[in-house]
Nucleic acid binder design. Structure first.
Length: 465
RNA sequence: GUCCCCAUCGUCUAGAGGCCUAGGACCCCACUCUUUCAAGGUGGUAACACGGGUUCGAAUCCCGUUGGGGACGCCA
C-alpha cells in the first residue's frame, strides 16, 4: 500500500506555526515511506473562508518548502459528492432525517448541562417515522451511531484509544441546507483522495471516534490515524498571539530561515536519540511516528533562535547578501547602492557568523550602507578619547600609505601599535568605533578591507576630528 | 460537568526492568581562545510530579492522587 498523507487547513486566517508542523510531519512521513503528500483546503465555511487566506497558506507552505505534490483540492468543490454519500447512508438505513430546529437543540444542550449530563443529541428522530415530520421544516441528516459497545482506535502516536459508544451521539452529516458538516466531509474526501494516514493535531482525537462511524457506515477501509500533541506557549497554555508570533509569515519577517524553522518544528515533539541538527534529507530518513512524543511541547524562541544562528552561519553568503540588501533597502537613512552591495558581499562571511537572525544581520550590516558622518553609539563614542583621536589620525596616515589589502592593513596597524608601544587592542577598538560606529563588529581589518580605501580613510578622519 | 489524552533538568528531548552515579541540545554561569563581539574548546548548576503496588531489581509495568491539555456546534 502506497502511503498518502494530507494537510488540511481551513482558510480562515494565516497559517499557524502549529499547522506548519502538522504539514511538516505529513510531508516527512509520506517521503519517508515513499508516498504522496497532498493538500486539501477545507473551505466549507463560506462565512469565514477567504481567498487571501488561501494564498497566505500557499505562500507560507512554499516558503517552508512544504508545498504539496499535487495542486490543492478545495473541499467546497465537492459538496455534491458529500451529499451523495449522505443520501447513500440514508438509503442504507445508516442515517436518518432529523427535524429538530437549532433552537430545540440549544434547549436540549442547556437542559443536559443543567442536569449534569453531557450535552448530546438524544436521538429523538432516530427511530421516529418521517411521516411525523413537522411541516415546513427542512431536515438535517444524522448518522446512526452505535449505542452499545465501544469504539477503538489504534493511534500511531497515542496508542490504543477507546471510548464507550454511549459517549457518542448521532452527529449531523448533512445540514438542513444540504451542505456537509466538517466531520462528514473530511471522511468522504479522505476516502476519495485515497488517504492512508491521517496525521493531525491532538485536538482531533475525540473527533476520530465520530469520523470512524462514517467509514464503517459506508463500509470503507479506515486510514491509520496519528494524533500529534499541540504546541503550547512558554506558559503552557495554547499557543496564541500573546506568546509572540504564531503566523508563519511573522517568523519570516522576524528573520528566521525556513530550514531553521523546519528543524525546530521537527524537534518540537519528535526526537531521535541525540539528533538535533537535521536537514530535510536527514529528517526524511529518520522520521517516523514512533519518534513522536505524546505530551504537548512548549514553544521556545531561544532554541529556535539558536538553531537559526546555526543555519545562518552555514548559509550561502550570496543568499544572505540578497536577503540583507532587501532589509536594508527599507531603511530610509541608508544609501543602499552598488557600494553598499560590494561592501556587504565582502564582509558577509564575517557578519553571518555573528548574527542569529536576518534582522540582526541587517542591523549589524547597516553601518556599511550608512552615509557619512557615521552615527556613533555611546560605547563607541567613549572609545574616541583625545589620545585615541591623535592615534587614529596618525594611523590613518600610515594606512594611507599602504596597500589596501586585509593582510597589509593588519601588518601596518600592528607595526603602528608596536612603534607606539601600544597593545593592538588599544588601536583596534578606536578604529572599530571610527569605522563601524560600534564596539562590536567582524574582524576590524576585514571591515577596513570591505569599506575600501576612500571610505575607510574618510571615516577615520571623521572620527579623529 | 462528562469523555479522551498527557506527565524525565527552566525549555525541547534520550531512555522500551538491571548498561542510569539519568545522557544530549537550548538557556544560564565560569574558564579558555582573542583586535571587539560572536563562533569554537573545557567545565559547572539543574529533572524521573506524588503515593501505593508487581519484581531480586522500576524513570521504565499496574493502580490511584495531583497537575496540565483537548473534545463535547446544522465551526473547521
Amino acid at each position: 500500500m502506497t502511503v498518502v498523507t494530507r494537510f488540511a487547513p481551513s482558510p480562515t486566517g494565516f497559517l499557524h506555526i502549529g499547522g506548519a508542523r502538522t504539514a511538516l510531519f505529513n510531508l516527512l512521513f509520506s517521503r519517508h515511506h515513499g508516498g504522496k503528500y497532498l493538500l486539501r483546503i477545507e473551505d466549507t465555511d463560506k462565512q469565514r473562508s477567504t481567498a487571501e487566506a488561501v494564498q497566505q497558506i500557499l505562500d507560507s507552505l512554499a516558503w517552508l518548502d512544504l508545498s504539496p505534490d499535487e495542486p490543492p483540492l478545495f473541499q467546497s468543490t465537492r459538496e455534491a459528492r458529500h451529499a451523495e454519500v449522505a443520501h447513500q447512508m440514508l438509503a442504507a438505513g445508516r442515517a436518518y432525517f432529523c427535524y429538530c430546529t437549532p433552537e430545540e437543540l440549544q434547549q436540549m444542550r442547556e437542559r443536559a448541562i443543567k442536569e449534569g449530563r453531557p450535552p448530546r443529541y438524544d436521538g429523538r428522530w432516530r427511530d421516529r417515522d418521517p411521516k411525523e415530520a413537522p411541516p415546513g421544516i427542512k431536515p438535517a441528516i444524522r448518522i446512526k451511531a452505535p449505542r452499545e459497545g465501544e469504539t477503538v482506535v489504534e493511534d500511531l502516536v497515542q496508542g490504543t484509544v477507546r471510548v464507550a459508544n454511549t459517549e457518542l451521539d448521532d452527529m449531523i452529516i448533512l445540514r438542513s441546507d444540504g451542505t456537509p458538516t466538517y466531520l462528514h466531509a473530511v471522511v468522504v474526501d479522505d476516502h476519495d483522495m485515497g488517504i492512508t494516514h491521517v496525521i493531525r493535531g491532538d485536538d482531533h482525537l475525540t473527533n476520530t471516534f465520530r469520523q470512524v462511524q462514517v467509514y464503517r457506515a459506508m463500509g470503507w477501509d479506515e486510514p491509520r490515524f496519528g494524533h500529534i500533541p499541540l504546541i503550547h506557549g512558554a506558559d503552557g497554555s495554547k499557543l496564541s498571539k500573546r506568546h509572540g508570533a504564531v503566523s508563519v509569515l511573522e517568523f519570516r519577517e522576524m528573520g528566521y530561515l525556513p530550514e531553521a524553522v523546519c528543524n525546530y518544528l521537527l524537534r518540537l515533539g519528535w526526537g531521535h536519540g541525540d539528533a538535533e541538527i537535521l536537514d530535510r534529507d536527514e529528517a526524511i530518513r529518520l522520521f517516523d511516528t514512533d519518534g513522536v512524543g505524546r505530551g504537548a511541547a512548549r514553544f521556545d524562541f531561544a532554541k529556535l533562535t539558536a538553531l537559526n544562528a546555526h543555519y545562518l552561519r552555514k548559509a550561502d553568503p550570496a543568499r544572505l547578501v540578497r536577503e540583507t540588501l532587501e532589509r536594508l533597502a527599507r531603511r530610509t537613512e541608508l544609501a543602499v547602492g552598488a557600494h553598499a552591495k560590494a561592501r556587504l558581499a565582502a564582509l558577509m562571511p564575517g557578519l553571518q557568523e555573528r548574527a542569529r537572525t536576518l534582522a540582526e544581520l541587517a542591523d549589524s550590516a547597516a553601518f556599511l550602507a550608512h552615509p557619512r558622518p557615521l552615527p556613533m553609539d555611546a560605547k563607541a563614542r567613549a572609545q574616541l578619547t583625545p589620545e585615541a583621536k591623535i592615534a587614529l589620525r596618525e594611523l590613518g596616515a600610515a594606512l594611507g600609505a599602504t596597500d589596501w589589502s586585509v593582510a597589509a592593513l593588519e601588518a601596518a596597524t600592528r607595526a603602528f601599535a608596536e612603534s607606539r608601544a601600544m597593545k593592538l587592542g588599544a588601536v583596534a577598538q578606536p578604529l572599530r568605533a571610527a569605522l563601524t560606529g560600534s564596539t562590536q563588529s567582524p574582524p576590524i581589518f576585514d571591515v577596513l578591507g570591505a569599506l575600501g580605501r576612500e571610505e575607510g580613510l574618510a571615516r577615520i578622519e571623521d572620527a579623529a576630528r
